[in-house]
Amino acid sequence: MTTTALTNPFLDALGARTGIRVEFYDPTGCRYGFPTFPYRYAPKSLATRRQLRADGLRPNGYDPVAQILWRHRKEIRKAYLYRRDLAASKRVASPAQLAVIERMLIARRTCGTCGITRDYYIPTRTGACLICETGGTR
């Protein structure tokens, strides 16, 4: 992917017209060492992990090619961007895997003392439900 494909015409024109440099706009990676975009200004050909997941995709083992930086309160936050054209479809769990997951979740809700399956997860520090736990109020 070329750097010209990563540029944003609006942000380029803004900088040329006003002389104001947008803080987190660095499509070449000269300033931040990695192509960087401000929040909501990344090219449509790039997506975060969450955006890929919403589209039913995954990064497919490829490294991120750019990043988004933004300020939140007093810290700078970062999200990595992956190429959509290299993403693969999400893997689907087999029926056997789903059955194992369901049994594991039931085991997390089963009390180790009384053996009753509760409608909440048993605390791991005690291994007992809230009724069996000493000093429990239920």
Rank of each mutant, 00 (worst) to 15 (best):
M1S: 11
T2I: 08
T4Y: 03
T4S: 14
A5P: 02
P9Q: 14
F10A: 15
D12W: 04
L14H: 14
G15D: 04
A16G: 07
A16D: 14
A16K: 15
R17M: 14
T18C: 06
T18D: 03
T18P: 06
V22L: 11
E23S: 07
E23F: 11
Y25T: 03
D26N: 06
D26R: 08
G29S: 03
R31L: 11
G33C: 09
F34R: 13
P35E: 09
F37I: 00
P38L: 08
Y41T: 00
S45F: 08
A47E: 01
T48R: 00
R49W: 02
A54G: 03
D55L: 15
R58F: 07
P59I: 04
P59Y: 05
N60E: 10
P64A: 12
P64Y: 14
I68G: 04
R71D: 03
R73C: 09
R73F: 14
R73I: 11
K74D: 12
I76C: 08
A79Q: 07
A79E: 03
Y80K: 08
L81F: 03
L81Q: 04
L81C: 06
L81H: 02
R83C: 04
R83G: 02
R83Y: 03
D85F: 10
A88Q: 13
A88S: 13
K90G: 06
V92C: 08
P95T: 15
E102S: 15
R103T: 00
M104D: 11
L105G: 00
I106E: 13
R109E: 08
T110G: 06
T113H: 13
C114K: 02
T117M: 09
D119M: 07
Y120F: 11
Y121G: 00
Y121H: 01
I122D: 01
I122S: 01
P123H: 07
P123Y: 09
I131S: 01
E133R: 13
G136I: 09
G136N: 08
R138H: 02
R138N: 04
